[in-house]
């Protein structure tokens, strides 16, 4: 690594050894990055530096978009306005009946002694059209810490679940998409209520369900929703539709692939789902041990009751 030597023409071995040295560092970094959380803090720190640059690159494009809006004819805008008003009217009518259902649901939950379902708040965000590496399965949105975004929130678009907030900076946040191969999503089959995991399919823009029981009741066209298990995603968000099921001979698990409803690559606006839990819930479907009932818990032995329920549920999913 002697920098002072002016490299002679035949100094190939030194050059090669330096290549090997640097390459090892690069491969080591990639391995660290691939294997989980070692570099998270670094990524978080570095995002603060890249944020202004990404915003600066995107600004002219945004202005161009605003400019073309400006140039559009009044006629087209009026037409659009009319269409949108009509849509709002219809959706308001639909929302009215939903409100009644929400009320009814609350009352029923109260009767059954369940705690109230978490209230959801949606934060609308624009996808910053900066082109990241296609293998990174991330998009950047223009809402950050200042707008109340925190790591782990679910991100949806008009179709369904898109991803999950990963790193957050002051004005932007990066969203890891559910199509990332490292992303595992607890889902439920809407028709049968079976629960399983959906992994990202990578570049193919689909999801793969690689560990289904052979005899699981699943047909093409079945819809997947988030199960809410694990406590990261709120339950009931539409996720994907089953496209293909393969039950390979001699294998122990069936494999299915699904197409997400969310169109992260085409949607310009997404919504971040912010849950407001009213009570620290004792026995809902989250994995965390409850902290709400310190009086009841006199010894750790009470924990298995809770855990046993969990394991039976997963056993049901495992055996189909």
């Amino acid at each position: 690594m002697s920098r002072s030597t002016s490299r002679a023409a035949g100094d190939l071995t030194q050059h090669t050894s330096r290549l090997v040295g640097y390459a090892l560092v690069a491969i080591f970094l990639m391995a660290l990055d691939q294997r989980g959380q070692y570099l998270d803090r670094f990524h978080q720190a570095v995002r603060h530096l890249t944020e202004p640059v990404l915003l600066a690159i995107e600004a002219p494009i945004r202005w161009a978009g605003a400019g073309s809006d400006w140039l559009r004819s009044t006629q087209a805008l009026l037409q659009q306005n009319e269409d949108l008003t009509e849509t709002v009217r219809q959706q308001q009518a639909a929302a009215l009946s939903l409100d009644a259902l929400v009320e009814e649901n609350k009352e029923l939950r109260a009767l059954l002694g369940l705690d109230a379902a978490a209230e959801q708040e949606f934060i609308t965000a624009r996808v910053i059209s900066v082109d990241l590496n296609p293998f990174s399965h991330r998009v950047v949105i223009d809402r950050g810490q200042r707008h109340g975004i925190v790591t782990g929130l679910a991100v949806v678009d008009q179709g369904g679940l898109v991803g999950q907030v990963d790193t957050v900076t002051a004005l932007t946040a990066s969203v890891i998409l559910i199509t990332d191969p490292d992303h595992a999503l607890p889902v439920r089959v809407a028709r049968t209520a079976d629960v399983t995991l959906a992994y990202g399919g990578g570049l193919d823009n689909d999801l793969s369900l690689p560990d289904l029981p052979m005899n699981m009741d699943l047909v093409i066209g079945d819809e997947l929703i988030t199960s809410g298990l694990g406590g990261v995603f709120p339950p009931g968000l539409p996720v994907a539709r089953i496209e293909a099921i393969d039950r390979p001979e001699g294998q122990s698990f069936a494999v299915a692939s699904a197409t997400p409803f969310g169109q992260h690559d085409r949607s310009r606006f997404v919504m971040v789902v912010k849950e407001q839990r009213q009570t620290p819930e004792p026995a809902t479907e989250t994995d965390e041990p409850s902290e709400a009932d310190p009086l009841q818990v006199d010894s750790p032995e009470t924990a298995p009751a809770d855990g046993g329920e969990q394991s039976t549920e997963s056993a049901v999913s495992g055996n189909g």
Binding site: L19, F28, L132, S136, R138
Partner: peptide, 28 residues
């Protein structure tokens, strides 16, 4: 090589790639 490595790392950081991916390719 060091310059190529640093430029590659910068590119990784900005494109959100696996850290070291572009560094390795520019190195080679």
């Amino acid at each position: 090589l060091g310059q190529a490595f640093v430029i590659g790392l910068l590119l990784d950081v900005f494109t959100g790639s696996l850290l070291g991916q572009h560094a390795l390719s520019l190195l080679v």
